[in-house]
Simulated scan of single mutants.
Amino acid sequence: MIPFTKMQGLGNDFVVIGTRDLTAIDAGRELLRHWKDRYSRFARAVCDRRFGIGADGLIVMVDFRDQPELREMFAYPDVSQSDVGWIYLNGDGSKSDMCGNGLRCAALWARNHFAVYDTRFTIATARGKSEIIYKSANEITINLGEPVLDAKSVPVKTKAKQFVNAPLNFSDLKATCVSMGNPHCVIFDAPPDAKLLGPSDSDDPAARFPSNYASYAPQIQSLDIFPEGVNVEFALIESESRVRLYVWERGCGATLACATGAAATVVAGVLEKKLARKVTVNLLGGSLDVEWSEKDNCVRLTGPANETFSGNFELSSMLDDVMTRGQREAICS
């Protein structure tokens, strides 16, 4: 049995497991040895809300102080300078270099399960080491690094170097595209329909979306200009330091909160001269404080994280959904 922790940041929920528990059993060691071939289907199985545990994403944590041999598996920038590392996977099995809500959960998990009690520490990520400032479970600050504005690197197809307040060629909408380790398409002040898809107090984030946003988002994600898909943000400015945000995530659909989306929105707002560099972003799941520093060009984000429950799952049964018959026989032999 593999222990897991269910966590959430503003309603964005995750299953968190540790590599130490995986390496304690044969099936777990086999999974890690063949990680590149199996991670996607494994994440989908774990995150399935009907047949798995259920989550928006899967987080795998490693304590390099305890398992230094796993540094090679991660192969992240600056991995040698971090005591703790993570792998983040979307619920649909796709990779993402960053997830802000997930990273805050990872920071809290490291404190509770790895005994990382320093108020400042770093977590190795695919974007490099991220500095964590821990004050309490309700106030965790993470450094998301510098935003990527180069259009080819976001990526978004355009002849321009950057995609800033540019036409989408869809419903007369304009957008700014930013990567925070994952691609974002930020649209300001598109008038929302008064009609929602469902009750305003629903736990389903899609039900709380204006109906036109819910219609636009999947169509925007399917545009040819986004070769790797895109997260879509609809931002309604309340003041230069406050914005209301609806996020339709790549791989998840409507979500209660997306921290990298909040960060991308502040960056886009500064580029379009609509927002200050320090902004409170109100999402369906709660609020995040975001700052894009002029000093080092990094985006820092502060918000809560919470452990909701824990349990155990039978890894061999979960692997039944991610392996061929031949692979299962190899593990059992």
Rank of each mutant, 00 (worst) to 15 (best):
D83Y: 09
R71D: 01
G54N: 08
Q67M: 13
E69F: 10
V79W: 01
S80K: 14
D63E: 07
S80M: 13
L58M: 02
F51D: 08
R65P: 02
E69M: 09
V84F: 15
G57S: 09
V79P: 06
S80F: 13
D56Q: 10
V84L: 14
G85K: 07
E72Q: 12
W86A: 00
L70F: 14
F51M: 13
E72I: 10
Q81S: 14
F51L: 14
R71K: 11
D83L: 13
D63K: 03
G54E: 04
G52A: 09
F51G: 00
F51A: 10
D56E: 14
S82F: 05
S82P: 04
F64T: 02
S80N: 15
M73A: 13
S82A: 15
F51Y: 14
M61D: 05
F64P: 00
D83W: 08
D83K: 13
M73G: 04
G85T: 09
L70M: 14
V84M: 12
D56S: 09
V79N: 06
Y76W: 06
D83S: 14
G57L: 12
V62A: 07
D66I: 13
G52S: 09
F51W: 11
R65W: 03
G57I: 07
D78Y: 11
G85F: 06
M73Q: 10
P77W: 10
D56P: 11
A55C: 02
D56G: 11
V79Y: 02
D63T: 03
I59T: 03
Q81T: 12
F64G: 01
F64I: 00
E69P: 04
V84D: 08
F64W: 01
W86F: 03
M61H: 12
F51E: 09
D63W: 12
V60A: 07
R71Q: 09
V79Q: 04
A75S: 15
W86C: 06
G52H: 12
W86Y: 10
D83N: 12
L58R: 02
Y76F: 15
L70E: 07
M61Q: 06
R65L: 10
E72A: 14
R71I: 05
A75H: 15
V84C: 13
M73E: 08
G85R: 06
Q81G: 11
F74D: 01
I59W: 00
M73L: 15
G57V: 09
V60R: 06
G54W: 03
S82H: 08
F51P: 08
M61T: 09
D83E: 15
A55F: 00
D56Y: 09
S80H: 15
G57P: 11
F64E: 01
V62N: 04
G52Y: 11
E69Q: 15
E72P: 08
I53H: 03
V84A: 11
F51V: 08
P68E: 01
F64V: 00
D78N: 13
V62Y: 03
D63R: 05
A55D: 03
R65F: 01
A75K: 14
F64S: 02
M73Y: 08
R65E: 06
F74N: 01
G85E: 03
S82K: 05
D63A: 06
I53S: 00
P77C: 11
F64A: 01
W86G: 00
F74G: 03
D78H: 13
I59V: 14
P77H: 10
A75R: 14
Q67C: 08
F64K: 00
R65I: 05
E69D: 15
R65V: 00
Q67S: 13
V79G: 01
M61N: 04
